[in-house]
């Protein structure tokens, strides 16, 4: 299998201060890859500060890793030639969280679609450009005559976010990095956006990395999940297995805290107490130890990944009877 995108031991450390340097580890030794031949939807989940957005920025090439490499189709993305770089920019697209901020209020929404067409010279005539736009809009379930020529304020948040997805689709990408694409959209409109994303994956063969803190939507769109906490992978595997039977205490807490719209499934049924984070991250042990209700003496050391079954792994000493999994081989447990 040839990986489409591959992260090898990627870490990102932000440091601040000139004299007293304080550093924050936003992403800690992450290795992941997506297969080029089997387009999939992978969820990266975690709370604020878990490193989700840092991962998105790294994948999009906006920032460089502090250590480790990111390969796109076998090439290190920090060392691309200008031609390769343009190709990378075209084939790896982003959908961001805020459907309001990405539009320039002075231009009709066509602007968002026509700029990439000009930039990447996708069409040599106006009619062709129009066709491309219509095709992309149809792909996300919008009708061109409903939205083209309108200004951003005349459209709903859901429509705007679908135009963003259409813009990504226009460039026929191989990978879309969607950073919280539905969190600012009304609950009743989320379904349509998620449906467009799934359609892109199924019909156009585009791989999607879906970054979110909302596990209910992740459950519905994704095939696999990676749960991040303070830059480290806590649990990973098949989405159905992880959500229905979470094994890491952090994932259990996360899933126990989802307000399911179901009267029979009460909040906190798993009896997971919530503890405050106390102080900054200290030492080299398990990142979740300070909030973990099951914390033990050995949690002062960093737990390895323990492979619970074919499609699930947890980085926790509660599961140390299971075989260890090399950090670099995390992808093996993720179903495509």
């Amino acid at each position: 299998m040839a990986p489409l995108i591959e992260l090898r031991n990627v870490s990102k450390v932000y440091s601040k201060g000139l004299i007293a340097r304080a550093s924050t580890v936003a992403l800690d030794n992450l290795s992941l890859s997506l297969d080029a031949d089997k387009p999939t939807i992978m969820t990266v989940a975690g709370e604020s500060g878990s490193g989700k957005t840092t991962l998105a920025m790294l994948l999009l090439g906006f920032i460089e890793p502090s250590s480790g490499q990111i390969y796109y189709q076998g090439k290190d993305i920090t060392k691309l030639s200008p031609v390769e770089r343009t190709q990378f920019r075209k084939e790896v697209q982003a959908v961001f969280q805020d459907p309001f901020a990405v539009f320039n209020p002075f231009y009709p929404v066509d602007h968002l679609l026509s700029v990439p067409i000009d930039k990447f010279k996708l069409a040599d005539s106006k009619a062709k450009a129009r066709n491309l736009m219509e095709e992309a809009l149809n792909g996300v379930g919008l009708r061109a005559e409903d939205v083209l020529g309108r200004f951003p304020h005349q459209l709903s948040g859901g429509q705007r976010q679908r135009i963003n997805v259409a813009r990504a689709l226009l460039l026929k990408p191989k990978l879309i990095v969607a950073d919280e694409p539905v969190s600012m959209v009304d609950a009743s409109l989320r379904a349509t956006i998620l449906e467009s994303l799934r359609k892109l994956n199924k019909e156009y063969g585009i791989s999607i990395i879906y970054i979110t803190h909302d596990l209910t939507t992740a459950f519905h769109v994704a095939n696999s999940i990676v749960v991040l906490y303070r830059g480290g992978v806590m649990e990973a595997g098949d989405i159905e297995t992880v959500i229905k039977s979470p094994q890491h205490p952090y994932t259990r807490l996360l899933i126990d805290s989802i307000p399911w719209p179901d009267l029979d499934r009460r909040w906190g049924g798993d009896q997971m107490p919530i503890k405050e984070i106390e102080g900054a991250l200290m030492g080299t042990g398990c990142k979740f130890a300070s909030r973990c209700p099951f914390v033990m003496e050995k949690c002062k050391n960093l737990p390895a990944h323990f492979r619970l079954n074919q499609h699930q792994t947890a980085s926790c000493f509660l599961h140390d009877q299971h075989p260890m999994l090399d950090v670099e081989k995390l992808t093996e447990v993720l179903p495509m």
């Binding site: 379904a191 998620l194 519905h220 229905k244 719209p261 499934r265």
Partner: peptide, 18 residues
């Protein structure tokens, strides 16, 4: 329609937008 649009643990990948 609002209740139907809610994500549900039993039917994965089924969406009912309004």
């Amino acid at each position: 329609a609002l209740i139907k649009s809610l994500p549900n643990l039993n039917q994965r990948g089924v969406f009912h937008g309004i």
